[in-house]
Simulated assay, not measured.
Amino acid sequence: MIARTLIEKIPSARWRVAEVISKTLYAKAFSNFGQGSVIVAPLKLGGLDRISIGNNVAVFEGAWLEAESAGSISIGTKTYIGHRVHIHAVGNVVIEENVMITDDVTISSGSHDSQNHNEIQTTGDIHLGRNVFVGEKAIILGGVTIGDNAVIGAGAVVTKDVPAGATVGGVPARVLTSSSNA
């Protein structure tokens, strides 16, 4: 009984420790780090002077946030970034407010050069509108704009723009349903 109680409390303890680290360390290192935002046990953080995080953003364990020298990342207020999410900005990545990015999602505005695999190049900026939901293990590639209130299905590979209010899924992602109330 005691062991179960302790094990169930560990994630809460990690969150509390992350709150302290976020307020004292991350708040000074990022371009902007909003009030009430927390990053819990990241895998990698890079280019922090080019990453802006709004208020009340939650970034969970294993996240990889990296902005290359020509790129930037902007994450809006009340955004949720799940476990093991990889956001890589070679170009610019803008994530508006109230976005839900579930576990194991990749958002990347870059690719490796076909001749020199050590070189990376931009594939275009990425923009996620307000109130977007990104399902588990989805991949969003460069040059894509996702409209407000869109839903990206689990495992989808988004290679083209997604209209506001649309639900997309598949590889490559295609519109499954659209909403005129977006």
Rank of each mutant, 00 (worst) to 15 (best):
M1N: 13
M1Y: 11
A3V: 13
R4E: 15
I7P: 05
E8W: 12
E8C: 13
K9G: 13
I10W: 11
S12Y: 15
W15Q: 10
W15A: 09
V17A: 14
E19L: 10
V20W: 12
V20R: 13
I21G: 05
I21Q: 10
I21C: 09
K28S: 09
F30Y: 02
F30W: 02
S31G: 07
S31V: 03
S31M: 06
G36N: 11
G36Q: 11
G36R: 08
V38L: 08
V38I: 14
I39V: 12
A41V: 12
L43M: 13
L45T: 06
G47L: 08
L48I: 07
D49A: 13
R50E: 03
S52F: 03
S52H: 05
A58Q: 14
A58N: 13
V59A: 10
F60H: 13
E61S: 14
G62V: 09
G62S: 12
G62K: 07
W64Q: 12
L65P: 04
E66H: 10
A67V: 04
E68Q: 12
S69D: 12
S69P: 07
G71N: 06
S72M: 09
S72Y: 08
I73L: 04
S74K: 12
I75C: 08
T77M: 12
T77Q: 15
K78D: 15
T79W: 11
I81V: 15
I81R: 07
I81A: 05
G82Q: 14
H83M: 14
R84N: 15
R84I: 05
V85F: 08
I87M: 11
V90Q: 08
V94D: 03
V94I: 13
I101M: 07
T102G: 09
D103R: 15
T106S: 13
T106A: 11
I107Q: 05
I107M: 05
S109F: 04
S109C: 04
D113M: 08
H117N: 12
N118P: 02
N118C: 07
E119K: 15
E119Q: 14
E119A: 14
I120Q: 07
Q121C: 05
T122D: 07
T122Y: 01
T122A: 09
T123R: 01
G124A: 02
G129H: 01
G129I: 03
R130D: 02
V132A: 01
V132G: 02
V132H: 01
F133P: 00
F133A: 03
K137T: 11
V144L: 04
V144Q: 02
V144R: 01
G147V: 00
D148Q: 06
N149A: 03
A150Y: 00
A150H: 02
V151D: 00
V151L: 06
I152L: 01
I152N: 02
G153C: 03
V158W: 00
V158P: 00
V158Y: 00
T159Y: 00
V162W: 00
A166V: 05
T167G: 02
V171M: 04
P172T: 04
A173M: 03
V175D: 05
V175T: 09
L176Q: 05
L176N: 02
S178E: 12
S179A: 12
S180W: 02
N181M: 06
A182M: 01
